[in-house]
Structures are given as structure tokens and as C-alpha cells.
Design a protein around this nucleic acid. Structure first.
Length: 887
RNA sequence: GGGCGGAUAGUUCAGCGGAAGAACACCUGCCUUACACGCAGGGGGUCACAGGUUCGAACCCUGUUUCGCCCACCA
């Protein structure tokens, strides 16, 4: 066995991370194989958009998944982590268009085919960049199976899916009001609209009655925020039971400016309390009005075109932008004396998620998915427990959306994406929808057919990701073995966009859920809690972090910060903490290696000292808790627990206490056994840490001489009850308390740390503890810098002129002669006495309450009693201390 | 208008029924042969407010205040 005893003094991640990743790849350790004697564990990665590079939110997401994958792999599962990227239709098209704009070119200059080629070029550059970033992070993905939502296989899946849904009547085409982005020149789905509060104006406009005065009124007043759409008004609606307007139903009014005569109709959609209680109906430019229009069979007059410009139906306003037209219309109405008043209001205005432009309700031919039947099954699957949400609270959000779901507009007037597989016949008008490109109309066999120009919403292909990536629609062995996937890890921002739709499509096409568990993590924000974005310049680039601190430090930091529920506020500072941890671990290992022989060490149980038994016990406890935490997806607790264990227990206590034995001060046999324990400790913590910090653990694993098999392939530690010594572990805690108390006494009494104290007297009342402390006298003197320690029975007299401190039933006394600043100590003691008196009084009051003794559990009452007696003893002792000092 | 989450040390956050924790920051000392990327010790909190349940509440319930997020057709 070769131990590497020449580790560098300081840990540096650079070369070792590169080296090990390449080794893992070369050995094919990430490859997922179908092994029927093993249980399968699978995750499909949420495919990042190929718009740019990964941000730290991805790093977090991926770290989580990688921890789960490495954990399960070590536990003996056959693990598939399937990587890939998303073509991200509108987003990618926009970034490429922006690039072109820098050269003064639009996509129209290039034409569809050339433009799509350009986007592919972009994809090849950035897609690869993203994959490289994932590798730097240490993602243990099976790269042989990398997929792209727009690759050949997935495109076939999309077509198959579309055709099946169409045949089932779940996809339809129709002329509806959709959200239209005048800048992107495409329809977008409801989810892609972001509403923001904005200042607006409420214009009260009078529509005159055609037949003159009615009940003393010459017209009725309608309130609108969008006066330019008056030009497309086709009716006025009032509530059917409105007292105020009932008598007007059926009467006619004249639309201002255009003088069209329109009817006053009744509709339940009108809220009689809002505005003036009546609504102008513009079916072509408002989604509500559109529905009212359908119910009443009204004409749809479009006055605004797809670029947000007034069209030929707008008369003299033709050619104006919406805002210009609004101003002009208001001015003209005012001139005609029909503008009653203008009010300032706040209302929410929809903006395009991708470019921020105000979206217009726009009437056009679009394709839709009828989502209701799909959503019903999706709801059921969660109610049945076939899918578990973690944290559970998201279930509610999911139900709420699914139960109120509206049809999904899936067509986009873009060039980058899956073209809709529908061909319209110029002769008979029939639409042929087919998986393979048809050559003729399936109805009249005319060759005069033309494919729909539109492409599909990018989420349409993402929805199939869990199975399309495994070869669907073919029945592949992968699907059989790895589907449903075990876990989906993603942020709450795409629950509707993606998670819900995967569930719907998975149930529809695979007749099974796409994943068993869905873990929704918090979003990473900057240190001020603001969402990171390029435009704000507050993004933390994972690559920069990795360059600076190493991938392991970044991963450990992200893992440790992971808590359910809250946003994660990240700063470089926080990652630095974990960079220090890497160095600590590194040096602890370096120390261990300096003390290990070049052969496996065995533990002689008869030679174990208290600290050895304690650390071995702690190892078993940490194995259990870490395993449980990861199983519950609580990687934050798992990471923090390991951090504390390694730094606090192993380094601060165990390594310090094992030094004499390792030096050989306690004899050769003791040395060997202490080395054995040390080896056992590292054999435990390195694998436990591996999912979190794969690189450094692999490097150290090799340095310890275990490199024949990768730490990735080493089994996940399991509790060994033969290495548990609960009794001694308890004693060790007492010993720690004693040592801390002595150190504390020294420091409080201003004894210089360099000063070697002559003697400390420890009085104990149980022989067992006395025995234990006697055994550890050398440790105590070494760790507290004292020449000698006397362990005496409690009955022995307290040394004269000494300060003392108490831990449980142990009293520790320090000769007063060594104290430097007597006055300071007197003040401190007086304050402490007051504090303890207060606590004792509180405990006594508690005990005096009759209910407490009667109802509280025995051990709680006992504890309270002990507090009182201990407190009283302490006060007595401190008073003695005071006296000692004053003399 | 509905729904969700947060309010704990100077800061960022754990804890979620039995006497308040960590990391940074701060103060006192230490280069003690793994680590100064470190060690030892310390100060610092009416756990937002008000009620209630309980022998006992940071934790459970009810309000209030406040910050943030999501959903919804406020014409």
C-alpha cells in the first residue's frame, strides 16, 4: 500500500480537479448501465437553455443532483444522470437576433433557413460551453447519453406527441385572442406574460344614444384604460340585473369618432360595482371582450396590427403607434365634448417575459393544447401519492394551477424551434397532420399543400424530456429500466412551465408519472436578496468561483446553504468559508498520512483510549445522520453536520488528543492502534464527504493508498455497532467539559497562555469518573498546559487560596498565586454570582408551581432540581473564590 | 381579490414543545512540529408585537405589524 506522505502544505484545487474528472471519464464511472441485479436510480437534468452560460443557480441545482447521484451510486444503485440542453426557442432566437443587430442585420435579411443555421452555430458554441461548465463542477452525468431538445430523436418524439394529441382531439387550431409580443412578433403563452403595476389613466367617455334622450340622459358613460380601442368597439355590456342600466338593454349608442351604431347588451361578466358599471366591448383587443363577443356572436374589428400599429380600420389614426393613437383619440373625444373625466389609476400591465415589451391581446390563428383532461390526471397522480412534492407546500401551488388550468397556446411565430407538423391544402383547405412529411393532402390528394410556418413553444419539447431522452416513442430498455425517473430537482419558478407539463405528458404518453419525487429548491439571490441578472450586474459566475475557490468549495458551500423554504443569499464570502474547510480537511489528512505506516492498520480493542472510542462512536452517529439527511433530501443539514464533525470533533479534539499516542509516547502497540483508529476515521469521512466534495476526497483517497478503486465506487459507509462505545463516548464529553473548564479558568484569571501552570486540583465524587480522569491526566495537562493534575475525592478538602469552577459534580481548582489581575477577576465573579442567583430563583419558582411536578415528565423535573442544587453549590463556591481573592 | 413564505446575535442564517446555536464580523491571547487558509478563550439576543393553548412556547393556535414571492379577465 502506497501512502502519499508528501502532500503540499496547502490545498490547491486546480490541477487535481481537472485530473480526477478526466480519470472518471476515462474509466467510464459515470456510465449508466442496465443491471437487473441492481436497483435503478435516475435523474434527468433540467436542461439549461443554450442562450449563454450557466449561472450559480444552475450550479446549485446541479450540485444537489450530483450529490444524490453519487450517494446512490455508492449505495449500489445503477445510477443514470442524463444530461442535456434546451433549444429554448424564443430566448435563443432573441439572443442571436441581438448578435445580428450588432452587425446591423435582422433575421429577415438572412431569411429563415440561413437564420436557423446561425442559431445552430450559436448553439454549438454555447451548448458546448455549458457542458464544459457542468464538467468543471464535477457533474457525474452519463455524457454518452447527452441530449438536446432539438436533436433528431427528440424532434421525432415531439412530432409523435403532437400527432397523437391531435388525433385525440387534444390539440386544436383556432382564431383566438392571445398574448402577443409586438417586438418578438409572436404569440406567447399566459405564463410568459409578466404583470407589473403601472400608472395608468381611466378615461370616462360618453357614448350618445342613437335615439336621443332616455330618462333625461343623452348617453351613457363608459370607463376605459385604452381609449384607442374605442375604434374597434362593437357593443356596450351591462350586468343583466343592473338597476341602473336594465332599461337600456337593447338600446343603441353611437361609438365616438367612428359613429358606428352599437347595441347595449347584457352579460354576467360585467361587475356592476366597478367603473361606471358598464363596459365597452372590443372583441378583437381584449380577452374578456373576446369571450363576450363569442357568446353574443359579435363582429371582431381589429384596429391594431401585429406590430402595435393602428391599421386601416382605424381611419385617420392609421399608422400611429398605440400610445400616439391613444393621445390623439383622447384629444378628439375631448374636442367633441364626450370626455367626461380622467382619473389616475394603478393597474397591472403585461410584459413579455423575454424582452419586456408590453404585450397586446391579439386576435390570430394559433394552435392550442386542450389541457383540462391532461391536468385532471396530473392532479390525481399527486393526490394518489404517486408523485411526492418536497417541500410539501408546493403541492398546493401545483393543485391551484392545475385545477384552474387554461388551454395552452403552443404555436409561436418564430423560426427557431420544432415546426408544427401540419400541412394545409390550398385546394380543399383540409389540414393534414402527420409524423412524416406528407406529399399530398390526405383528404383530396392534392399536391398543393403547405406546412404551417409556426414552431412550437419550447416547453412543448421540454415536457417530454423525461422519456423522450430515453428513446421514446420507441420502447427502449432504458425506458423500461430507468422510467419513471426517481427524482426531479428544480426551482419553483418553472413549476408551471415545466414540472406540471412533464407530469401531464408523462401520464398521457407513458401512462406513468415522469418522476417519483420532485424536489423544489429555493432560488439563489445575491447578498442583498436581489435576483441575479446580467443586466443588474450582480451575477455570481460559477466558473469564477471555481477558479478562485475550487469546485469542491463551491459545491460544499452551496450544499451547506441549502435549506428548504428560504431564498439563498449568496456571496463570495460564504464560499470562502468552505474553501477554508477544504484546507482544513487537507491538512488533517496530511497529518494522518504523516502518522500512518505503509500498511493497513488494525485496531486492538484492548488498547483503545477514551478519545478513540469516542471518535469511533461519533463516526457511527455521523454515518447514520448523514445517510438519513440525504435520504430526506436535506443536504444542508448533511453538509453542515459533516463540516462540524470534521472540523470540530475530528480536528479540534481527536487529532489533538491522538498526538502523544501517534508519536509513540505510549508505546509501539498503542501507536499502531491509534493509527488504526485514525485510518478508520478517514475511511469513514472521506466517503461520506465524497458526494459533496468529490475531487478532494478522491485525491485524498488515493493518497491514503486506497486508489485501486475510485472512491466513487467504494461502498457508502454503514453503521458498525461493534465500533460504538456509548459509555466511553459519554465519558469523553465529561472530559471535554473538564478541559474546557480549565482553559476557561485560566483565561478568565488572565493566566498567560505561555505560562505553564503548576497544578490543578480536580475533586470528583464518583469513582468511575475519577478513574476516567486519572487515566486522562496526561491529556489534561498537555491540552491545558499544566505541569500536574491531582484527582481527589470530593470529600477531600478544597485547596486553600484557589479559584474553582464546576462541571456537573466535578470541581476544578486553580491556585490563586498564578492569577495576574485579581481585581478584574473579583468583578467578574461578582457578576457571575448575580447571574446564577437569577437562574436559581427562576428554577425554584418553576418547581414551586404545583402543576409542574405533577404534569411534567420526571426527567424534566429532576433536571430542574439538579439545576437548583448545582446553582446553589456554584454560588457557594464562587463566594469562596471571592473570599480567596480578597485575602 | 386569493394563496404562500420570512421576521432569532452587528450581518447572513440554522433550530420549530423542555434553560437560545453556527458562520462571518468583533474583543483577549497564542507561529503549541497538520493547518496563521490556523489554535484557545470571550462579549453580544424580552427569538417582530398582542392575546391564547400548555406544568412548560422562538417553536402550536388566533389576531396585528412588516418585508418578499406567486396566482387572478381591476374593463
Amino acid at each position: 500500500m502506497e501512502r502519499n506522505k508528501n502532500l503540499a502544505k496547502n490545498y490547491s484545487p486546480d490541477e487535481l480537479e481537472q485530473k480526477w474528472y478526466q480519470t472518471w471519464l476515462d474509466k467510464g464511472l459515470f456510465n449508466a448501465e442496465i443491471e437487473h441485479d441492481k436497483k435503478a436510480f435516475s435523474i434527468v437534468i433540467p436542461p439549461p437553455n443554450v442562450t449563454g452560460s450557466l449561472h450559480v443557480g444552475h450550479a446549485f441545482d446541479h450540485t444537489f443532483q450530483d450529490i444524490m447521484c453519487r450517494f446512490k451510486r455508492m449505495q449500489g444503485y445503477s445510477v443514470l444522470w442524463l444530461p442535456g440542453t434546451d433549444h429554448a426557442g424564443i430566448a435563443t432566437q432573441n439572443v442571436v437576433e441581438k448578435e445580428l443587430a450588432k452587425q446591423g442585420i435582422t433575421r429577415h435579411d438572412l431569411g429563415r433557413e440561413k437564420f436557423v443555421e446561425k442559431v445552430w452555430e450559436w448553439k454549438n458554441i454555447y451548448g458546448n460551453k455549458i457542458i464544459e461548465q457542468m464538467k468543471r463542477l464535477g457533474n457525474s452525468c452519463d455524457w454518452r447519453r447527452e441530449r438536446f431538445t432539438f436533436d433528431e430523436g427528440l424532434s421525432r418524439a415531439v412530432r409523435h406527441d403532437f400527432v397523437q394529441l391531435y388525433k385525440k382531439g387534444l390539440i386544436y387550431k383556432g382564431r383566438y385572442i392571445v398574448n402577443w409580443c409586438p417586438r418578438c412578433q409572436t404569440a406567447i403563452s399566459d405564463l410568459e406574460v409578466e404583470y407589473k403595476e403601472a400608472d395608468g389613466k381611466f378615461y370616462y367617455v360618453k357614448y350618445l344614444f342613437v335615439d336621443g334622450e332616455i330618462n333625461g340622459e343623452w348617453g351613457l358613460t363608459v370607463a376605459t384604460t385604452r381609449p384607442e380601442t374605442i375604434l374597434g368597439d362593437i357593443a356596450i355590456a351591462v350586468h343583466p340585473r343592473s338597476e341602473k342600466y336594465k332599461h337600456l338593454i337593447g338600446k343603441k349608442v353611437r361609438v365616438p369618432l367612428v359613429n358606428r351604431e352599437i347595441e347595449i347588451i347584457e352579460d354576467n361578466m360585467v361587475d356592476p360595482e366597478f367603473g361606471t358599471g358598464c363596459v365597452k366591448i372590443t372583441p378583437a383587443h381584449d380577452p374578456n371582450d373576446f369571450l363576450v363577443g363569442l357568446n353574443h356572436n359579435l363582429e371582431q374589428i381589429q384596429v391594431i396590427d401585429d406590430k402595435g400599429i393602428m391599421n386601416e380600420n382605424a381611419g385617420k389614426y392609421q399608422g400611429m403607434k398605440i400610445e400616439e393613437a391613444r393621445e390623439a383619440v383622447v384629444k378628439d373625444i375631448e374636442q367633441q365634448g364626450l370626455l367626461i373625466k380622467v382619473e389616475d389609476i394603478k393597474h397591472s400591465v403585461g410584459h413579455c417575459q423575454r424582452c419586456g415589451t408590453v404585450v397586446e391581446p391579439y386576435l390570430s390563428d394559433q394552435w392550442f393544447v386542450k389541457t383540462k383532461p391532461l391536468a385532471d390526471r396530473g392532479v390525481q397522480a399527486v393526490k394518489d401519492g404517486r408523485i411526492k412534492w418536497i417541500p410539501e407546500q408546493w403541492e398546493k401551488t401545483y393543485f391551484n394551477w392545475m385545477e384552474n388550468i387554461r388551454d395552452w397556446c403552443i404555436s409561436r411565430q418564430l423560426w427557431w424551434g420544432h415546426r408544427i407538423p401540419a400541412w394545409t391544402c390550398a385546394d380543399c383547405g383540409h389540414v393534414t397532420v402527420a409524423e412524416t412529411d406528407p406529399t399530398e393532402c390526405e383528404h383530396c390528394h392534392s399536391k398543393n399543400i403547405k406546412q404551417d410556418e409556426d414552431v412550437l413553444d419550447t416547453w412543448f419539447s421540454s415536457a417530454l424530456w423525461p422519456f423522450s431522452t430515453m428513446g421514446w416513442p420507441d420502447e427502449t430498455p432504458e425506458l423500461k429500466y430507468f422510467y419513471p425517473t426517481s427524482l426531479m430537482v428544480t426551482g419553483f419558478d418553472i413549476i408551471f412551465f415545466w414540472v406540471a407539463r412533464m407530469i401531464m405528458m408523462g401520464l398521457e404518453f407513458m401512462d406513468d408519472v415522469p418522476f417519483r419525487d420532485v424536489y423544489i429548491h429555493s432560488l439563489i439571490r445575491d447578498e442583498k436578496g436581489i435576483k441575479m441578472s446580467k443586466s443588474r450586474g450582480n451575477v455570481i459566475d460559477p466558473l469564477v468561483m471555481i477558479d478562485k475557490y475550487g469546485a469542491d468549495a463551491l459545491r460544499m458551500g452551496l450544499a451547506a446553504l441549502a435549506t428548504q423554504g428560504r431564498d439563498i443569499l449568496l456571496s463570495a464570502n460564504k464560499i470562502e468559508t468552505y474553501r477554508l474547510f477544504m484546507n482544513k480537511l487537507w491538512n488533517a489528512a496530511r497529518f494522518a498520512l504523516m502518522n500512518l505506516d505503509d500498511k493497513k492498520h488494525f485496531i486492538d480493542k484492548n488498547l483503545l483510549h477514551i478519545q478513540d472510542k469516542w471518535i469511533l462512536t461519533r463516526c457511527q452517529e455521523v454515518i447514520a445522520s448523514t445517510t438519513n439527511f440525504i435520504n430526506e433530501y436535506n443536504i444542508g443539514e448533511a453538509a453542515r453536520g459533516l463540516y462540524d464533525f470534521v472540523w470540530g470533533d475530528v480536528c479540534d479534539w481527536y487529532l489533538e488528543m491522538s498526538k502523544p499516542a501517534l508519536k509513540g509516547d505510549e508505546g509501539e502497540e498503542r501507536r499502531k492502534t491509534a493509527a488504526g483508529v485514525l485510518e478508520e476515521v478517514f475511511k469513514t469521512i472521506l466517503p461520506l464527504l465524497h458526494p459533496f466534495i468529490p475531487f478532494v476526497t478522491e485525491e485524498l483517497w488515493a493518497a491514503f493508498g486506497y486508489g485501486e478503486i475510485s472512491i466513487m465506487q467504494s461502498p457508502w459507509p454503514v453503521e458498525n455497532k461493534f465500533l460504538r462505545f456509548d459509555d466511553e463516548a459519554g465519558s469523553m464529553r465529561i472530559l471535554q467539559d473538564v478541559i474546557r473548564a480549565v482553559r476557561n479558568l485560566r483565561a478568565e484569571a488572565r493566566v498567560a497562555p505561555s505560562q505553564l501552570l503548576n497544578k490543578v486540583v480536580i475533586r470528583v465524587d464518583t469513582p468511575k469518573v475519577a478513574n476516567m480522569l486519572n487515566f486522562s491526566v496526561d491529556q489534561i495537562s498537555r491540552l491545558c498546559r499544566i505541569k500536574g493534575v491531582d484527582i481527589l475525592p470530593h470529600a477531600a478538602p478544597r485547596p486553600a487560596a484557589s479559584l474553582s469552577s464546576v462541571v456537573g459534580n466535578i470541581e476544578i481548582s486553580l491556585p490563586v498565586g498564578d492569577i495576574l489581575d485579581v481585581n478584574a477577576e473579583i468583578v467578574r465573579l461578582s457578576q457571575e454570582i448575580l447571574k446564577i442567583e437569577k437562574n436559581v430563583a427562576a428554577s425554584k419558582a418553576k418547581l414551586d408551581k404545583p402543576d409542574f411536578a405533577a404534569r411534567a415528565p420526571k426527567e424534566v423535573v429532576e433536571k430542574e432540581r439538579a439545576r437548583v442544587s448545582e446553582g446553589e453549590a456554584q454560588i457557594k463556591r464562587l463566594n469562596e473564590n471571592l473570599e480567596s481573592l480578597k485575602n
